[in-house]
Design a protein around this nucleic acid. Structure first.
Lengths: 143, 143
DNA sequence: TTGCGTGCAAAGGTTTTGCATGGCA
DNA sequence: TGCCATGCAAAACCTTTGCACGCAA
């Protein structure tokens, strides 16, 4: 669960640090590779993919496929397990991931289960759309 | 919008027919290719991808990335425009796409917009989980 | 010292592109 | 007849794998 197994190599630390710092952005394997190159800490792509796989299994990152992109996107996820207890909103414009603590939405979750027989996978389900900030910005641009 | 532009070739018809007949299943480009080969109507993969792209743009098909799979999945979508007015549930087990006509869920949609400022993209948002039938079947298997 | 981690290069798979040919309108 | 559509093969991509070497514990 907590990915504590394994060696604490500088490559692993560098990858993890980058993921954490970009908690609210789409991150691809290529982006990690590029960033590390620029920072002077070159890490082979194979190593990056191997770590992402492990982080995925341990639940430390989520994996997305964003719109038109062909490559997978990863995002650091909270480890406290709360992410299986609430929905997530993802802004299609800025890429921000919002952890939605909302009883109204959870009522819908219960309703779907009880009245439709459908058990929603909270971890996997993501509401795509546009967040308040991006909508306001959009409105301002259209003057 | 309605993809009526373009020639009515037998390749395009064959692809579209297969997609429609498998409205409730995950369909990959490879599956289309295989099926058409077996039916005796060989169609080059390039043609298949080109049509899928066009159908995607016109909104006639949706594109998914299913869990462990590496290739994209496509699914025929209704054309009547109603799909922008309700949520969708997707069973992770049987692949069925459920068009959810549910006022409770739509209340949540309104709530997210009014109280959280988040405009959900109904067409893109999909609730992943398990449908009633698959859950019952699962329960029966565990005897 | 032991065995996991890493880098490189090659392999594997999916999707896209270029170009000559074929076929709808 | 004029274009768009198609097929093939090559290219472009992303991701995985094999293997020898390096390094954390």
């Amino acid at each position: 669960m907590n990915h504590s197994e394994g060696y604490k190599t500088k490559q692993r630390m560098a990858i993890l640090e980058f993921l954490k710092r970009n908690e609210n952005a789409h991150v691809t394997a290529a982006m990690i590779s590029d960033h590390l190159d620029q920072t002077g800490t070159h890490v082979g792509v194979a190593t990056i993919y191997r770590h992402l796989d492990r982080l995925l299994e341990s639940g430390e990152v989520r994996k997305y496929t964003v719109d038109g992109t062909t490559s997978a996107c990863y995002q650091y996820a909270r480890l406290d397990g709360q992410c299986r207890e609430h929905f997530h909103l993802k802004c299609e414009k800025c890429g921000r991931l919002i952890h939605l603590e909302c009883s109204h939405a959870m009522q819908t979750f219960d309703h779907l289960l009880e009245d439709h027989g459908f058990a929603v996978d909270l971890y996997r389900t993501v509401f795509y759309g546009q967040c308040r900030e991006c909508r306001e910005q959009e409105g301002a641009e259209e003057e």
